[in-house]
Design a binder for these strands. Structure first.
Lengths: 153, 153
DNA sequence: ATGGATTAGTTGTATTATACAATTACGATT
DNA sequence: AATCGTAATTGTATAATACAACTAATCCAT
């Protein structure tokens, strides 16, 4: 209760935590809804997203960024291959690695979900005063960078 | 690909989406880690959090804010009751309702997780230039309010 | 070089999370 | 009182997940 926190105002941190908690949950629900436009689950959509973002990553790479066990991810990959959305390709340099690659259909779905999410965000941002939008953008970026530099995540 | 978006700069939206996607996933992993300090799962910690935040809500209330089916939540409640962290109390005004109440131990855990999360956030915020912290705070608040006013969530 | 350690991925297994449907109990409407 | 609607629970099937064991490929130290 009366823990001391080093560098910040405690009340402000409590406030930020509460806001992030709610924000993140809501955005998660939105993502789930967005994925449904292609008949995909939330996790499946994240897998496609990361394959696209990381550029033909290995199975382990994706498992790590998503915080899932490699066995769990292996099964997701299996499912997505069966749905014709991604391909496994053995790496030529190290045959232990499997490169994950989006198929045409996979790209199409990834794009469709992306557009859906952007449509949602467009709606949301329209409720923010125009002169504040750049600030919000910058702030999210600051927060993300801070997380990257932080020891805890 | 060339969808038109109404009010915002498209590239900015793509950027915000990407940042939020990563931010939210990382924060989710952090929450999971934070919950583990009490041997709880992520969902369990959210249930405790919402019981505390909403102030003795009904089972349906909590299911709704978490986006879970009431049956799923009923089982989580069952588990948390068995662990002695919450109590079910039949509402006196309408006996169909069950009020969910944190026990002393439940409060203790909720507090402990909260402190853990605040410790993480303190660390993260320390990597943001001091003069930008209020701006970040305000921006998250703006975004949250915008979501509340938005039709899509 | 070669035999042991290391790494990537898959598969076996058990557990947990989840949704939907049916049911029970209560309250509101008429 | 009869019917309808709502809150919660329980039955059931399915999906998600982790951990452990395993296979295959590579690395490395002697």
């Amino acid at each position: 209760m009366n823990n001391s926190f080093s560098s910040q105002n405690n009340q402000q941190l409590v406030c930020i935590r509460e806001m992030l908690q709610i924000l993140i949950r809501r955005f998660g629900l939105l993502q789930k809804e967005g994925a449904e436009c292609c008949g995909l689950t939330l996790v499946q959509s994240h897998v496609l997203y990361e394959i696209n973002r990381l550029g033909n990553p290995s199975l382990n790479d994706v498992a790590n960024v998503l915080g899932l066990d490699k066995s769990t991810l292996s099964r997701h990959v299996q499912g997505l291959v069966e749905q014709g959305l991604i391909e496994r390709r053995q790496s030529t340099t190290d045959r232990r690695y499997v490169e994950l690659i989006l198929t045409e259909q996979g790209k199409k779905y990834e794009d469709q979900i992306s557009n859906q999410m952007i449509t949602y965000l467009d709606e949301i941002m329209s409720h923010i005063p125009e002169e504040k939008r750049d600030q919000v953008n910058e702030s999210i970026n600051l927060l993300l960078k801070a997380m990257k530099n932080s020891s805890c995540c």
